[in-house]
């Protein structure tokens, strides 16, 4: 009987989480040290260069329709002269229990065997549900055919987002998305694929630090670290304080707070109480009186 209940619970997990895997091949994750991050924005431009995200222009930016997959959020607390400014880079945290995956009626977004939350552009019909369900607001939509739209019209100029010869810069490993399609951070899946291919050719697992997404690579302060959480010896597991937590999958199965598991008291996950189980681990910034007041705007 108990066995049956267990089996049913297991099945139930699959029903609740479309992307449920007992164990991932690799479990890609990121650690962002907020004490290192200065908010300089290099990652934002690096991402734009790597992932063919179009420039949308002033007017569209004003509507919140810029397509950056990673953004720096900046929070200011207090009034002059006691001003506290805090930065946090926000990108898709590839949630383990991703709300977006449940939302999509056509499986355009699903969890892959590497623990990534992937978006299939070809399958997307544009119901916007994933973006609405996303608590992190990291999903971006292709509102127009950007290589046809003149985004300088308001300014009297003329330029599409990939105005020739700027189009020659486009990364051939990444598609240029069609109008009407949702997109988001992929952890530079093209680099992951390339590294996997290489590793397979050489008949070895991927080495720690072998893959660096564009944002991680460019970060001048080395605030971002990327790696495989399946490997407790990896740098990110060390940084996040998850190396001694025994089976990291406990983290997935138990749904406990990271502060209960991690040996690093600085580790936290953004909006953890929503139980989306994001796989980006932020390291708390060290500052005096940094916590925000619960007061209202």
């Amino acid at each position: 009987m108990a066995g049956f209940i267990e089996l049913m619970l297991e099945r139930f997990k699959v029903y609740r989480e479309p992307g449920y895997y007992k164990r991932f091949d690799y479990w890609w994750a990121m650690v962002i040290d907020l004490d290192r991050c200065t908010g300089c924005g290099a990652c934002v431009t690096a991402c734009q260069a790597e992932n063919n995200t179009p420039v949308v222009g002033e007017e569209e930016c004003g509507k919140g329709r810029n397509l950056s997959w990673i953004r720096i959020e900046r929070y200011i607390e207090g009034e002059y002269p006691n001003v506290k400014v805090k930065f946090i880079p926000v990108l898709c945290p590839q949630c383990d229990r991703a709300p977006c995956e449940v939302a999509c009626p056509v499986y355009a977004t699903y969890h892959n065997q590497d623990g990534l939350n992937v978006q299939v552009y070809n399958r997307c019909v544009g119901t916007f549900t994933c973006a609405t369900y996303c608590p992190y607001d990291v999903r971006r939509f292709n509102w127009f055919t950007y290589n046809k739209k003149n985004f300088l019209k308001g300014n009297g100029g003329s330029s599409t987002s990939f105005e020739p010869p700027l189009d020659q810069q486009l990364n051939p490993d990444v598609s240029v998305r069609e109008m009407g399609v949702m997109e988001k951070c992929t952890f530079c899946i093209q680099r992951i694929r390339a590294a996997k291919d290489r590793a397979k050719d050489e008949n070895r697992p991927i080495r720690d630090g072998e893959i660096q997404p564009a944002c991680v690579q460019t970060c001048p302060t080395k605030a971002l670290t990327f790696g495989d959480l399946n490997n407790p010896k990896s740098r990110i597991a060390q940084l996040a304080g998850l190396s001694t937590a025994g089976d990291l999958h406990y983290l997935r199965e138990s749904g406990s707070k990271i502060s209960d598991i991690s040996s690093n008291p600085r580790t936290y996950r953004l909006l953890e109480d929503l139980n989306a189980a994001p796989t980006i681990f932020y390291l708390k910034r060290v500052m005096k009186n940094g916590s925000s007041t619960a007061g209202h705007e």
Binding site: V102, P105, V106, V125, G126
Partner: peptide, 29 residues
């Protein structure tokens, strides 16, 4: 409301050679 309304039939579970099925977990489904 759809971003790509020409694919309006994709949310319907019709049999197709690509073996693509719809996501029955989705409230939209």
């Amino acid at each position: 409301h759809m971003g790509r309304p020409w694919n309006f039939y994709w949310p319907f579970p019709y049999p197709n050679q690509r073996e693509m099925w719809t996501n029955f977990q989705s409230p939209l489904m």
